[in-house]
Design a binder for these strands. Structure first.
Length: 353
DNA sequence: AACGCGCCCAACCGCAAGCTC
DNA sequence: CGAGCTTGCGGTTGGGCGCGT
């Protein structure tokens, strides 16, 4: 169908003009027949050249529509079903690494935010960028809305990183323990290492570990932490008054936090640069190669402690029912919080407003 | 049973980059 | 070098569905 240079060649079935084609083009949900047509055509002719493919296959669809249908739904390796806990954790981690691109325009406060859904999706076999994007917008942004804070705010990112993600790790570990671990699917946790083997069908193993050979990289010129991706800048973290006191490979615990979280102290201290980023150890960036990091080697230290550290320090939290729907409703994967968590976080956010 | 509401997700749209001639 | 086309990406939309009243 294509010429030597790869440019589309009009096939016999395409004698209509573009205008005529546009009038006939179907939109909306795909039918089974259309799916079969597309599958058969790709099986025989391969992917690519979607516009000519659509014409030659007799599909009254745009090339874009065919491409999207194939990539997001019909591809044999597309994984279906709910996002697993491991995948959620990976999404949160990769989003914090790649998700936002802040571009400072000189002498202005303008910046662009460019999400990297496709890049994130590449690290989750069988998942599409559309799925990742939908997950983020429906689940994660919902939680931000519940907390009455912006999903891009420092508070929410810190909450995600230091509460949500550790809680996911706990649940993954708990699930692995409950299921009975074997040599091929094991979960081990030591003071410095937490290795989690997933049970997904792709046999992908996501490792969360602390490795002294990996050094955090602090870009002093930019006064920001560069966590490896050439264009990602993390917001400065400050949780529970734990500022600049966390050892690179140490725990983020009540012992090394200067101030234990409390309703009137949390979030009120601000540091120009927080060493909390050290709670995660990242490899040294090598040039601007964004793909340098082994995607399955997510670096967590023992900083992945129980969120209870923040809440069980003798604080007398008031019980609240206002967010019970959040905790009780939704699927299991959303049920990571309790009423005290929500109350505490909302107090913290309110104090920062 | 009917209605309203919110959530989820497949599909669409616009834009930009890359490729080819 | 520029035009035309293709591809890929991220944001948005709208229909289906479940749940509560």
């Amino acid at each position: 169908m294509d010429d030597v240079k790869g440019r589309a060649v009009t096939c016999n079935s395409s004698v209509q003009s573009d205008e005529e084609m546009d009038l006939d083009l179907r939109r909306g949900p795909w039918t089974v027949e259309e799916d079969l047509t597309l599958i058969n055509y790709v099986a025989h002719h391969g992917e690519g050249r979607w516009n000519s493919l659509a014409r030659c296959a007799g599909l009254n669809r745009t090339g874009k529509s065919c491409r999207l249908r194939w990539l997001n739904y019909l591809r044999p390796d597309v994984r279906r079903g709910n996002i697993t806990l491991e995948e959620q954790l990976l999404i949160l981690e990769l989003h914090s690494r790649w998700g936002n691109r802040y571009i400072d325009i000189m002498e202005t406060n303008f910046f662009l935010i460019n999400y990297r859904w496709s890049k994130i999706a590449q690290q989750l076999p069988g998942r599409t960028d559309n799925e990742i994007k939908n997950y983020w917008r429906t689940r994660v942004q919902k939680h931000a809305k519940q907390l009455k804070c912006d999903v891009n705010s420092k508070q929410f990112k810190d909450t995600m990183r230091y509460l949500w993600m550790p809680r996911l790790v706990e649940r993954i570990q708990a699930a692995a323990t409950a299921n009975g671990v074997s040599s091929s699917s094991s979960t081990t946790t030591t003071a410095a290492t937490a290795t989690i083997s997933t049970t997904n069908t792709n046999s992908d193993t996501y490792h969360y570990y602390n490795d002294n050979n990996y050094n955090h990289n602090y870009n002093q010129n930019q006064n920001n932490f560069d966590i490896g991706s050439g264009d990602v800048v993390l917001p400065h973290a400050n949780i529970g008054g734990c500022l600049g006191s966390v050892p690179v490979n140490g725990s983020f615990t009540s012992e090394n936090c200067s101030t234990v979280a409390s309703s009137d102290s949390v979030g009120t201290q601000v540091s120009p640069v927080s060493d909390l980023t050290d709670c995660y150890n990242y490899p040294v960036k090598q040039g601007n190669n964004q793909d340098y990091f082994p995607a399955n080697q997510l670096c967590y230290g023992e900083s992945l402690i129980s969120p209870n550290v923040y809440f069980n320090q003798g604080l007398d939290f008031q019980a609240t029912e206002q967010n019970n729907r959040w905790m009780d409703g939704g699927d299991l994967s959303d049920n990571l919080w309790n009423a005290e968590d929500i109350w505490f976080l909302q107090q913290q956010f309110n104090n920062n407003v």
